[in-house]
Design a binder for these strands. Structure first.
Lengths: 337, 337
DNA sequence: ATGAAAGCGCTAACAC
DNA sequence: GTGTTAGCGCTTTCAT
């Protein structure tokens, strides 16, 4: 367990001052006109002994931790797990590490988490926020931390946001169902005021309204427990025997909705047509395959990390806040006739 | 953007020395016999102004970052995503944050990643290692960092490991197939020397050998590209028309294997029986549902984080290295007759 | 029971 | 071009 080398040790061994080493390390050699010869010598020595600057000390000094805080609803949800993966790749390429956490859509938990990240001095935040954390995020922003929101927006928070056209997505999906002759279309969603869920519901409602059709909405409280969802969906379907189609508002609602449907012995699409919001391996591979509104995960993560890296690079420039709304695709499969 | 308070500001405002504040903050009040009255006053003030110690400075001083490095093959793989989630919950409960990264099974990338984590002074490591990083991990360990391995073991590394009975799992699965009358059983696996894949293969081979049956093994190079896997599996199945059953060595091999099977128009289980290693929503919900060897994800993550937290708590005590091998369950579904 | 001060390792303003 | 040095905010030894 050999002692870690410090910049001081290097300086001593080389009979140079720490400043010089520091300048070379931080790419100020040119600007400070340090002799090429010296630069070479220092770099060679550093490589030889495998010296690595202590990033803690550096962070303490510079105030930058080169860490990004990623806050999602649940890192084990495939949608967020995929986003996490792509953000990771990009962040690491740019010298940033990722601290992650799952909010469980829990406002209080999220507040705590924000505070923890703040204490850790993360340089920037990527957040899919639950309701009710507007104040905390605004505090973050006004204290100078770059924040990019995604998946759901917080209208009272004035910062970059990357999302999808939720309204249009469900609106189109419902119209597609209607054009295929479905007349009693249900919507299973989260009991939530989050912007994306509200918009999805509005798209559903508008499409129905234009055709003078009845709404059949089931709002389910957020839960990590598949059984909770299955029970709610089952009860809903039992009660609404007239339904000939159902749109699920999220991927896990759909996954567990499918379980409920199969449990009830319903046949897709003959007894019930199904559309899911957000794609999932399950929807491609189940038999029949399930029509899904697919989000452009790659683009979403790409835009999110780009926005954040830009802010991180030029924190001074008070750029206009950007709101990016990407399009989804209705991936038509066999779950409707 | 108000300036952050430091312990010095607090000390000044309260007309107390920083030492006292620090002692109170770190729970040494009792031991240092600081008057209750003072303790109260300080804590009240701290709560009032919302002072939070700078964890960077603290880390620099103490050498502890209260961060755990989590290295998995791919955070977007449901198996690892679920593990990540459970480890997160546990770690946060104990005051640790998680820095994560995906190795892609890439030895060089992993070496870099280890170094990065090391530079960040993570307090402990949880690693599902690729081949070839034995030296780096041993260096880590001998420099005093606690390391817990999981999913795949590195025999040359002497540290805690949590895994499953890979050999027994495939051995039993194959025997189950044989007992159901299958005679030409294929095994689709990763072209990898990782311990878990080797053991799974051995289980397959032993079971076949005991019944004097031929092996049909397809080793596929690791790839993030589903199409690569689909092509390999398709080619394999086309070549080996005599197969009446196939065991997939990982969940994503199975998921993409299913795609290949459906593409080829093969019917499960009539044309081909299927067993997957590692469960997945897809296997439960596809029709027919797919028999799977399920890993006890909750237990695995629980043991992993416990082992690490224990080491973190008592680093001195040179405990015996623990190797935990958990059992899997053969979840029988409709993919075999 | 409380305070002064050293020092963790680094950066950068300032001096020469 | 290179060196000296003052902190960044905290913990902890030592002194009182």
């Amino acid at each position: 367990m050999k002692k870690k080398l410090s910049i001081n040790d290097i300086a001593k061994s080389l009979n140079v001052s720490v400043t010089t080493i520091s300048f070379i390390l931080n790419g100020h050699a040119e600007e400070k006109r340090i002799s090429d010869e010296l630069v070479q010598r220092v770099q060679k020595y550093i490589a030889e002994v495998g010296y690595k600057p202590n990033s803690l000390a550096r962070s303490l000094r510079t105030g930058k931790s080169h860490t990004i805080g990623l806050m999602v609803e649940d890192i084990s949800n495939p949608f967020f797990a995929n986003i996490a993966r792509m953000i990771e790749d990009n962040a690491y390429k740019n010298g940033y590490k990722i601290l992650y956490c799952s909010t469980d859509n829990d406002t209080e938990k999220t507040k705590d988490l924000i505070q923890m990240f703040q204490e850790r001095h993360v340089d920037g935040y990527i957040i899919a926020p639950p309701e009710g954390v507007e104040t905390e995020i605004n505090t973050l922003i006004s204290s100078g931390s770059p924040v990019v929101l995604f998946d759901r927006n917080l209208p009272e928070v004035n910062t970059d946001y990357v999302g999808i056209d939720n309204y249009g997505s469900t609106y189109n999906a419902i119209n597609h169902l209607i054009s295929r002759g479905y007349r009693n279309i249900g919507f299973v969603t989260l009991s939530s005021l989050q912007s994306q869920m509200q918009e999805r519901m509005q798209g559903y409602e508008s499409a129905l309204a234009e055709h003078n059709m009845y709404q059949h909405i089931k709002e389910i409280p957020y839960s990590n427990e598949p059984d909770d969802i299955i029970k709610h969906v089952s009860a809903f379907l039992m009660r609404k025997k007239e339904l000939d189609a159902v749109l699920f508002g999220t991927n896990y609602l759909a996954v567990n909705g499918l379980r409920a449907i199969y449990n009830l012995g319903l046949k897709i699409p003959d007894d019930l047509a199904v559309i899911a919001f957000d794609d999932h391996d399950v929807f491609q591979l189940s038999n029949p395959s399930i029509t899904a509104i697919t989000q452009p995960i790659k683009e979403i993560s790409g835009e999110v990390i780009n926005l954040l890296l830009n802010k991180l690079k030029s924190p001074l420039k008070q750029k206009k806040v950007q709101t990016l709304i990407l399009d989804t695709t209705l991936q038509i499969r066999k779950s409707l006739r």
